[in-house]
Design a protein around this nucleic acid. Sequence first.
DNA 1: CGTCGGGGCGCAATAATTTCGCGTGCCCGA
DNA 2: TCGGGCACGCGAAATTATTGCGCCCCGACG
Lengths: 171, 171
Amino acid sequence: MPELPPPRLDEIDALLLDLLQYDAGRTLHELGERVGLSPSAVQRRIARYRKDGLIAGQIAVLDPHRFGPTVLATVLVTLNQESFEHHRVFAERMRAEPQVQQCYRVAGPWDYVIVLAARSMRDCGRLGDRLFKADDNIRRYETLVAFDTIKTSLALPLPAPQSPPPQDRRP
Amino acid sequence: MPELPPPRLDEIDALLLDLLQYDAGRTLHELGERVGLSPSAVQRRIARYRKDGLIAGQIAVLDPHRFGPTVLATVLVTLNQESFEHHRVFAERMRAEPQVQQCYRVAGPWDYVIVLAARSMRDCGRLGDRLFKADDNIRRYETLVAFDTIKTSLALPLPAPQSPPPQDRRP
DNA sequence: CGTCGGGGCGCAATAATTTCGCGTGCCCGA
DNA sequence: TCGGGCACGCGAAATTATTGCGCCCCGACG
């Protein structure tokens, strides 16, 4: 699996990607206005981001609390058997479960950090039972139920541009 | 602030929202094909989701590891002073920091769970210093650096439809 | 039992947006 | 100094989104 080097990004690329990762609903015209390019130039750049895998996808973000009660929770998990195979099986189970929003394997006494989205406190409890209590390879887990959501996003802090900024060529 | 009741959703609504929260790049035609509606009907439904606040936004998801090295970490934080004002100030700081992807206030001995995105291990350390070590209202914090990302999303498990499914009226 | 809206649909015309070929200018290396 | 590659803007063409219209189904009410 060839790990390609990160593509060179100029200032406009960083600007565009940053605009897109906070609001992908804008037209090419509007994006072009903000970064100083024509719609077609913007379109060509975005096509390149897709081809290069910089943009992994485009999604609608739903508001959890407009769908009736929603319980978010963070779960810390430590496995029992740490073999490669056990990790693989666990990861696969997390990936397959729609109520698992996020899952990270981490350094330290805990092995995994997981973010769950449930429809009720009871659902949350049962989900924990099903995913972790019923798994006899899990030594210990701790559920941190969220009172409140301060912030959620998947936005990345973009690296500073490595290429000199091209000039604005619009009329 | 009037907390409106969650809108009634039929089976098609749930289907559409689920399609959109995993891929918002499809055309109305394609969406209509999948749920059994005409493009215009799909468009009207989506407009309603926006108006009702079910869809909070539409974003491009960037691939962290295509932008050179990226370090993700979860941080657990306990405040010193627990007054309302102290919480407000802390929350505001988290919201203002682009490298804070997510922040939840949680039950239990820890007060907050935070997900950070940094450009390097060193950046991650400095970010922690700046956000938490330099804040003398933070009693204790623990950083769980991610080795690996199993899954990231903001997708919600959608509630089962509360209204009977309308029939397919296409020719 | 019949009639009267309201809501949601498909269709089709219209508007907006995206896509793509073409010609141009700039930058860089030979 | 002279090409060659690259990215740009322009504008035509294709695709997609939007909106008005008439229809049908269903529930409410007489």
